[in-house]
C-alpha cells in the first residue's frame, strides 16, 4: 500500500540506560495505513540503510490484546478517542506532519529497548489478587447464581480492561489506579468475587504501591486515554472497597493469605 503523504517521525530510541530522539522521514504513506504499518515502512527504510530497525510492541494489531503501547504526540495511543495504537490510522494526520513517538513513561515500566517497556508490574499485581479461587471440575449452571443486571453490566465494563497501561502513561503521577480499580471492581461486583473481596483489594493495592506507581490525584487523564473507556467510577469504588477492607473487624479475613 502506498500513498502520497510524507511523515516526519521523531522516535525515541534507547539501548541501555540512555536514550534519545531520532528523526526519520517516511515517504509514500497512505492515509489508509495503520500507524503501525507506517512504522513498519519506516523500519524497512532503516533496514535498507543497514541500520537497526526501531523496536516497538504489538501483537494482535486488532485493538484487543493490550500489547501496542506508543505515546503519539504526547497522548497514549494517539489523537483518536477510545482506540489502541494499532487502530490509529494515518488519515488522522496530514502530509508533512511531525509525529513524536515515545514509550509509556513510568518508573514502574522500565524501558527494555526503544519503545518496548517492561509491564510485568501489571502481571505481579494480578497475581497478588486479580482472580477468584474456586474448585474446578464440573462447572455449576451459571444461572443458579442470580446477579443483578446493573451489577453485571458494571462488572462487564470494568472487565473490558486489556491491561495496556495507557492509564499509567497518561497520568502525571504514573498511577496505576485505573488498572487496579478495573480488576477490583470487576470481581467485587460479582457474587463469585465477593467471597475474597477484602483480601483482594488489600493485596492488590499493596502490590501496586510496591511496584512504584504513583498516587491518584483525580486528574482523570487515565479515563481519557483508555482505549476501552474504563470509567473513573471504578477508582471511587475501589477506594470504598479499600476503606471497607481496612476497617473490617474480622482479623482472620483481613490478615489471612489469599
Amino acid at each position: 500500500m502506498s500513498g502520497n503523504m510524507t511523515i516526519n517521525l521523531k522516535i525515541w530510541r534507547q539501548t541501555g540506560d540512555k536514550g534519545a530522539f531520532e528523526t526519520i522521514k517516511v515517504p509514500n504513506v497512505s492515509p489508509d495505513m495503520s500507524f503501525l504499518e507506517m512504522l513498519d515502512e519506516a523500519n524497512e527504510l532503516l533496514m535498507k540503510q543497514n541500520t537497526e530497525p526501531f523496536a516497538f510492541d504489538h501483537d494482535c494489531r486488532e485493538g484487543i490484546c493490550g500489547m501496542c503501547s506508543l505515546v503519539i504526540n504526547g497522548v497514549p495511543h494517539g489523537p483518536d478517542y477510545a482506540i489502541t495504537t494499532c487502530q490509529l490510522h494515518m488519515r488522522s494526520f496530514k502530509d508533512g506532519d511531525i509525529i513524536v513517538v515515545e514509550p509509556w513513561r513510568a518508573s514502574a515500566f522500565p524501558i527494555i529497548k526503544d519503545c518496548v517497556v517492561d509491564r510485568t508490574a501489571f502481571d505481579r499485581i494480578i497475581a497478588a489478587g486479580g482472580f477468584i479461587s474456586v474448585n474446578t471440575g464440573s462447572a455449576q449452571d451459571a444461572n443458579n447464581i442470580p446477579v443483578p443486571k446493573v451489577d453485571a453490566d458494571k462488572s462487564f465494563d470494568a472487565a473490558a480492561c486489556i491491561g495496556c497501561g495507557a492509564c499509567v502513561a497518561a497520568c502525571k503521577n504514573a498511577s496505576a489506579m485505573l488498572f487496579v480499580a478495573a480488576k477490583v471492581s470487576h470481581l467485587a461486583l460479582l457474587p463469585q468475587g465477593k467471597v475474597e473481596r477484602t483480601k483482594r483489594v488489600l493485596n492488590m493495592v499493596e502490590q501496586m504501591d510496591k511496584e512504584g506507581f504513583g498516587n491518584c490525584t483525580n486528574l482523570y487523564e487515565c479515563e481519557a486515554a483508555c482505549p476501552k473507556e474504563i470509567s473513573v467510577d471504578n477508582i471511587a469504588r475501589m477506594n470504598r472497597e479499600y476503606l471497607g477492607a481496612n476497617i473490617m473487624h474480622d482479623e482472620v479475613i483481613r490478615t489471612a493469605k489469599l
Binding site: 539501548t15 532503516l46 533496514m47 543497514n50 541500520t51 537497526e52 530497525p53 527494555i112 529497548k113 518496548v116
Partner: peptide
Amino acid sequence: VNVLGSGNDFNKN
C-alpha cells in the same frame, strides 16, 4: 541473511 542489531540485547529481528 542480514540480521541487524546485536545478539546481546532485546532483538526482534
